[in-house]
């Protein structure tokens, strides 16, 4: 882990919503090709952190962000168009949110918005990204049917494929399995473990066991502050802070 290149470097990140701090003085580095998990109770700032990384936070009225986030050394506010940033840093939301169009059109949405028109490269992107998200075998014969007809777990994997089609660098997951059954959850987790060979993954989860299963490193957030960050195995065996151990042993949260 130590020798890996730094993907995200975050310095002094503060996020406020109309005067209320959601995130306070966060300093953190996320390495390339690791699964970085973030745990913590509700309102601890986990989702705010995730949304800061691809600037979806800008959509929140009254949000104020200060501090510096660098992606591969480039300031994500000054050095990149926001559209380009969001293509590099894709996000899977808590609920499966396919657009109300076909499976195919969901996958190519981002590419179409980039102006890709050539049917061959669109077809190729669909096949590649659906294979990567382990959905291809289940849907290859009905790509033109509505995405809404898929099951919840399939929809969530479709949402992954939709990001992968744009060949991103980083995948953000915002409690991606909170609405799914255990089998679908296991499939999503397996997929993440494969995907980290190619991508950097930041996983926010309200499921402590999930962090323990897939995380390389884990951070514990509480009320907008990062209490602790360490190797996942360290965090779950010998946490440095008593609040961390209280949380992971289920005493609160």
């Amino acid at each position: 882990m130590v020798n890996r290149a730094t993907k995200f470097s975050i310095q002094g990140l503060h996020v406020q919503y109309g005067g209320m701090y959601a995130l306070r003085d966060l300093n953190l580095e996320i390495a390339a090709n690791e699964i970085f998990t973030v745990i913590g109770p509700a309102n601890s700032g986990k989702s705010t952190f995730l949304n800061s990384l691809n600037r979806l936070i800008d959509l929140e009225a009254h949000s104020r962000v200060s501090g510096m986030i660098r992606l591969d050394g480039i300031d994500i506010r000054a050095g990149l168009e926001v559209e380009a940033l969001r293509r590099k840093v894709g996000i899977v939301f808590a609920l499966p949110l396919p657009l109300p169009v076909s499976i195919y059109e969901n996958v190519v949405y981002g590419l179409r918005m980039q102006g890709v028109r050539d049917a061959k490269s669109l077809d190729a992107a669909v096949e590649r990204s659906l294979i990567e998200s382990y959905l291809w075998e289940e849907v290859k014969d009905r790509l033109r049917t509505p995405a809404m007809n898929l099951s919840g777990g399939q929809q969530q994997r479709l949402c992954m494929a939709r990001i992968l089609a744009g060949q991103p660098d980083v995948l953000l997951f915002d409690e991606p399995t909170s609405g799914l059954d255990p089998i679908s959850t296991a499939r999503i987790e397996e997929t993440m473990l494969v995907l980290k060979e190619k991508y950097t993954i930041v996983l926010v989860t309200n499921n402590v066991a999930q962090a323990a299963r897939v995380g390389d490193r884990t951070a514990f957030f509480l009320m907008g502050e990062m209490i602790e960050v360490s190797e996942t195995s360290t965090m779950f065996t010998t946490p440095a802070d008593s609040r961390t151990s209280d949380y992971i042993t289920g005493k609160f949260g």
Partner: peptide, 21 residues
């Protein structure tokens, strides 16, 4: 609302989001 969020999160501009989603 999530149609807009999803579209923007996939790298569409605001106008593209309005136009297509």
């Amino acid at each position: 609302r999530h149609f807009r969020t999803v579209s923007l999160s996939l790298g569409a501009s605001r106008w593209q989001t309005i136009r297509h989603s």
